[in-house]
């Protein structure tokens, strides 16, 4: 098997010297979709923030394409090709949809063909092109957050709970869009508590419990695991 594109090795991270994520190791191969599932407070967000550089990990390594990027600043990680879509989205509320997308490609000035690709995936954004991001609905903001990340031409797209604040219908629409991206060959790492959706998208998954990886396997393995079924699928 070839070297994974993204590999977390013994990653620890937390706040005020108190680790929330303990010794997490996982890998994502090129073109693979991987889900990290776990309940609220399991450490999913902290783990992703430590990978993308919004907070420094306290220990461990993050290898991207063979290089250790652990502790790199967020803007460097983003420019290197690991692009993060946080659950709170962090859009630029007083800028138009188009400007948000253009900034996604920073420091480049994107050609309009690249904008069109995003508009093809999310026709809704085309309709709202000149509307301020802050005035859009939750579903539209989610599309914009993913669209803005795509403008950076990511090699790995990391998403934290892309269904946050969305109705069940919009949530499954969001996952349909992600499935389209996966089918186009994009490497995806998604953290999610809506386990059926995440396992529907992913090839493989990891269960994060109290900041530690408990279980790992293919999406089918996890779906059929009695522990997972009981804890996250309610059956």
């Amino acid at each position: 098997m070839s070297e994974p594109l993204l590999k977390l090795d013994g990653l620890c991270a937390g706040y005020l010297g108190q680790d929330v994520v303990h010794d997490v190791s996982l890998s994502v191969a090129e073109g693979e979709a991987v889900a990290v599932i776990g309940s609220n407070g399991a450490g999913k967000t902290t783990m992703l923030r430590a990978v993308c550089g919004l907070m420094p990990p306290s220990r461990g390594s993050v290898y991207f394409d063979g290089t250790d990027i652990a502790g790199d600043k967020a803007h460097r990680v983003s420019r290197s090709g690991v692009v993060y879509v946080p659950a709170e989205r962090h859009l630029f509320p007083q800028m138009s949809v188009k400007e948000n997308l253009i900034l996604g490609a920073y420091p480049k000035r994107p050609p309009s063909s690249q904008l069109d690709q995003v508009f093809d995936l999310f026709p809704r954004l085309k309709e709202r092109e000149s509307q301020h991001a802050g005035t859009m609905s939750g579903g539209e903001q989610q599309m914009l957050a993913v669209g803005r990340a795509l403008m950076a031409a990511p090699r790995v797209l990391m998403l934290d709970e892309p269904t946050t604040g969305l109705s069940p219908l919009l949530a499954s629409e969001a996952y349909n869009a992600l499935a389209e991206l996966r089918n186009a060959g994009l490497t995806i790492l998604v953290a999610e508590q809506q386990v059926p959706l995440a396992l529907g998208l992913a090839d493989r998954g990891y269960v994060l419990d109290h900041g530690r990886i408990g279980l790992t396997g293919t999406a089918d393995d996890l779906r059929n695991d009695p522990g997972v079924r009981k804890a996250y699928l309610g059956v």
Binding site: A74, R89, H90, F92, A105
Partner: peptide
């Protein structure tokens, strides 16, 4: 408008 958002798109 959003410093963390700026960092995530690659702005230093």
């Amino acid at each position: 408008q959003d410093e963390n958002g700026a960092r995530l798109v690659g702005v230093n």
